[in-house]
Amino acid sequence: MTKIFKNTYSYYFLLPAAIIYTIIFLVPTVMSFFFSMTRWSLQEWDFIGLENFRMFFEEPSLIIGFKNTFIYAAVTCVLKVVLGLLLGVFLTSKIRSKGYLRSVIFFPTLVSTIAVGLAFSMMMHPSQGLINTTLAWLGINGPDWLGDPSIALLSVAFVDVWKGVGFATVIYMAGILSIPAEYYEALQIDGGNAFRKFWNIIVPLSRPATNSVIILAFIGGLRSFDLVWAMTKGGPGFTTDLIASIIYKQYQGGFYGLATAGNVILFLFVSVLAFPLYMFLNRKEVDL
Rank of each mutant, 00 (worst) to 15 (best):
V27L: 14
V156H: 05
V75N: 07
A174E: 04
N7G: 14
L138M: 15
L153K: 01
N141M: 11
L118R: 00
P143I: 05
I151T: 06
I151M: 07
F275R: 02
N282M: 10
F66K: 09
I202N: 00
G84C: 02
V75I: 15
T113L: 05
T92Q: 08
I63Q: 09
A174I: 13
V272A: 13
L227R: 08
I189K: 00
I131W: 09
T260W: 00
S121P: 08
T109V: 14
V27K: 07
Y278S: 10
S61I: 11
D46K: 13
A174Y: 10
A17S: 15
R102Q: 15
L205K: 07
G191D: 08
P276C: 04
G175I: 02
T113M: 09
G254P: 12
V156G: 07
S224E: 15
L266F: 08
K284Y: 12
E182K: 09
F35N: 05
F195P: 02
I19W: 03
D287T: 07
G175H: 00
Y183C: 01
I176R: 03
G139K: 12
L79P: 00
T240P: 09
V165C: 06
A259V: 06
L187G: 15
A157P: 15
K163F: 06
G237S: 11
V213M: 02
A157R: 02
V27M: 09
L85P: 11
W145K: 02
S271Q: 03
L101N: 06
K67E: 13
V213T: 07
S178Y: 02
V228Y: 01
V30P: 02
I48S: 04
V170L: 15
L87M: 14
S127V: 11
G166W: 01
A244K: 03
F120I: 09
T232M: 07
L227G: 11
A73G: 10
K98I: 15
M123E: 07
G191S: 03
K197D: 11
G65W: 00
F35K: 10
K98H: 04
N200H: 12
N132Q: 08
V170S: 07
K67I: 12
F158T: 10
R223L: 11
I247H: 03
A230Y: 06
L42G: 14
K80Q: 15
